[in-house]
């Protein structure tokens, strides 16, 4: 009987975490690479800004997104002329999770890129490889395990996102209710059995994702050192 009420939250959580990871992947890996290899003006500012979701309460970001996407907000229906349909939808949950997992992916990716010996990249370049070729043939293959770990860490952070998600996506059973917001809802109505099930699934998924990422991290360390 409980399964029917748990399954939608479980499926939605996986869906949101997967989409969030896909959304974050390119910009976060690019920024990780930039921070690993380049010196530029305002670098520390970029670093601090990118890390903000780690130190700022998720509710603050939820509030920010709510203000931005509400009907009369700068990204709302009245300003754009059409409805992005972010608030109280699963897209909002994706956006919230993506924002909150971004810094973790950037940091882990940055370490993965830093662990690639610059010597090998220079050698490839001196042998006539273009910058794209160096990236594609040398840097990415060498950093691969660390980058996969970075994405998995982002995925696990997205699995557990609560504070921003509950504000932006709401807590609508079967529509926007994830494992994290579902636990809160179950507690609110005193349905402890459901809360236990949801918490169990959260722990299981989180553990699986983090454990796999640890495995990749260990491989990436042994491969590059």
């Amino acid at each position: 009987m409980q399964w029917e009420s748990v399954a939608p939250a479980l499926v939605l959580t996986l869906q949101v975490a997967a989409c969030s990871t896909a959304l974050v992947a390119l910009p976060a890996l690019a920024l990780g690479r930039l921070l690993a290899r380049r010196e530029f003006r305002g670098r520390s500012l970029v670093e601090a800004l990118a890390a903000l979701p780690l130190y700022c309460p998720p509710t603050a970001f939820g509030f920010l997104l709510l203000r931005a996407f509400r009907r009369d907000g700068p990204l709302g229906e009245q300003a754009l002329g059409f409805d992005l349909d972010v608030l109280l939808t699963w897209r909002g949950a994706v956006l919230a999770s993506a924002l909150m997992s971004f810094p973790l992916v950037v940091r882990t990716a940055r370490v993965a890129f830093e662990n690639v010996p610059p010597r090998l990249e220079h050698m490839a370049a001196s042998l006539g490889a273009s910058r794209a070729q160096v990236l594609w043939r040398v840097t990415l293959p060498l950093a691969r395990n660390g980058l996969i770990a970075a994405l998995l860490i982002g995925f696990s952070r997205a699995l557990g996102e609560f504070g921003a998600t509950v504000i932006v996506a709401g807590n609508i059973p079967g529509r926007t209710q994830t494992l994290a917001t579902g636990i809160f809802d179950a507690l609110q109505v005193g349905d402890d059995a459901r809360a236990v099930q949801l918490a169990g699934w959260s722990a299981l998924l989180g553990f699986a994702a983090v454990w796999t990422s640890e495995w990749f991290l260990r491989r990436s360390r042994s491969a590059t050192s």
């Binding site: 709510l66 509400r70 009907r71 229906e77 608030l87 109280l88 939808t89 709401g170 807590n171 609508i172 059973p173 079967g174 529509r175």
Partner: peptide, 20 residues
């Protein structure tokens, strides 16, 4: 029928913000 339960105050704000 898709239900969204909450305090009436929260719901009113959500309706104002989204028309959902």
């Amino acid at each position: 029928l898709v239900f969204n339960f909450g305090s009436s105050a929260t719901l009113a704000q959500q309706i104002e913000a989204t028309r959902a």
